[in-house]
Amino acid sequence: MTAIERELEVQRSSMEEQPAALLQNVTKQYPGHRALDGLSFSLRAGEIVALLGPNGAGKTTAIRVLLGLTSPTSGEARLFGRSPRVRAARTHVGAMLQVGRMPESLRVCEHIELFRGYYPRPLPLQEILRIAGLASVSQKLFGDLSGGQKQRVLFALALAGDPDLLFLDEPTLGMDIEARRALWAEVRSLAARGKTVLLTTHYLEEAEALASRILLLKNGRLLVEGTPGELRARAGASRIRCRTQLSEPFLLGMPEVKELRREGDRWLLCTDAPEAVLRVLLQADQALSGLEVSPMPFEEAFLSLTGDAVAEPAAMGQGGLA
């Protein structure tokens, strides 16, 4: 293969693997505040990606730039290789944004029908109602719905055009755990049908349950990205609990032990090399008992990555519901 052929091959394959969405070195500067700071990422067709991060990390701004709702100070946003401001690009995209209030005197079905009309190949109304779980309230005025139902209407509007790419900004905010689970199931089945999904969330559990890839943002920058498992591993995260005669200096002396705590009559060791630590422990203390090895809960892994002890206490509490 000559160099030129190789070059052509690269070009061809990059055409086929056109990302559904792309941010390239995007900075968004507000007066006195930089919301995005050289952020780059791309979404491959068919994956569910979660933008995770504390408040003010730039999650919503990233989505707004990708939707063409705000223009980046520098850098570039692309939807299917096109500017997000082009209407043709938007016909492939559905968005669920954080809407404080919307017109209350239209019926659920009227709202959905109106949005269906914006797209060239919308989903049938009945299917949208079914997926969003709104069939029983389709004739109700929007203003008469409960908070969770209103949120589901926004989800329905995002689906209306049968888009290839879905943006979900805090989709389950204000939903109870059952409604949240139901929405997750629908998002998964959308991805199974080849849709690409980008969601932002405060709920760590949500990111872990849905996303094949997590982008962790902080101060408008991409801190780290990976699968939920990789992220946890990067945070160095296994816990070993045991009852042992070994002394505190000995335990702390092991280079693999990152942190040591007393938990009742047991020791708690945090490490990213549990096998090596266990080998030493079992060798040194034949009477060791009460052994337990567990992965670090995702929340703590997340906190250790953002270095942020106060990510969002209220939301974290809810996110921790298992």
């Binding site: 709702l69 809407v99 919307m102 914006y118």
Partner: peptide, 18 residues
Amino acid sequence: AYERGHGWLELKRASPMP
């Protein structure tokens, strides 16, 4: 003013609505 202030207009703008 209402629809702009509460984010509804933004959602409409994100759609392909002219």
